[in-house]
């Protein structure tokens, strides 16, 4: 029974990530974009998808991988995805990215992306010093950052008119939010606030 369940969960995860990626790869917008811009956009989709992986790893429902170590490596991958996303957009249109980073962009979605980006970097910083932080500060900090990352990323992605196809984008966003709510509730880190 257990191997069957594991295979099902892995296939569901692969599907949840592959379907929106394949749909985005069919976008007509791609034919009018430079490779750097396309890579930047897909780095963003991959970043959103990695959030799902992170929550499932922490939930312990992905059999066959060392969950904690994989969570750290996926986190590093998320940092790289965010970096590629921003760097690629910067190369494509520097003034637009400068406006976004300085919170003066006219686009309403960009501020959510920047907030999520800083929350990702802050998490990486916390993770680097987590032994000195102590368990309580680390857990609370990491969980608070996770809430910011998920909400910021999902709102950011949802408001963008880009390469992602709308239905599959909605699907991936809902799955990520559902996984986040499920895992965060289960871990009940807020009990440490008392």
């Amino acid at each position: 029974m257990a191997p069957m369940r594991g295979a099902l969960i892995w296939s569901a995860l692969v599907l949840a990530i592959a379907v929106p990626l394949i749909a985005a790869a069919q976008s007509p917008l791609l034919q009018w974009r430079d490779p750097v811009y396309i890579i930047a956009g897909f780095a963003g989709i991959v970043g959103l998808a990695l959030l799902l992986v992170q929550f499932l790893l922490i939930a312990g429902v992905l059999p066959g991988v060392p969950a904690r170590r994989a969570h750290i490596w996926t986190g590093a991958g998320l940092v790289i995805a965010v970096f590629l996303h921003v760097a690629g957009l910067w190369i494509t249109s520097p003034p637009d990215v400068v406006d976004v980073l300085l919170f003066r962009s006219p686009t309403p979605f960009s501020v959510w992306g920047v907030v999520a980006m800083w929350a990702v970097f802050a998490t990486a910083g916390l993770a680097a010093f987590r032994k000195r932080l102590g368990l309580r500060a680390w857990r609370l900090g990491h969980n608070a950052a996770a809430v910011v990352i998920v909400s910021g990323t999902v709102i950011h992605a949802w408001l963008i008119q880009g390469a992602m196809e709308v239905t599959t984008k909605l699907g991936l966003c809902l799955v990520v939010v559902a996984a986040a709510v499920w895992v965060l509730r289960r871990r009940r880190v807020w009990r440490m606030l008392r």
């Binding site: 974009r33 249109s93 637009d96 686009t107 979605f109 960009s110 408001l159 008119q161 880009g162």
Partner: peptide
């Protein structure tokens, strides 16, 4: 004009 940087 096609959407770029999130908006057409």
């Amino acid at each position: 004009i096609v959407p770029a940087f999130g908006q057409p």
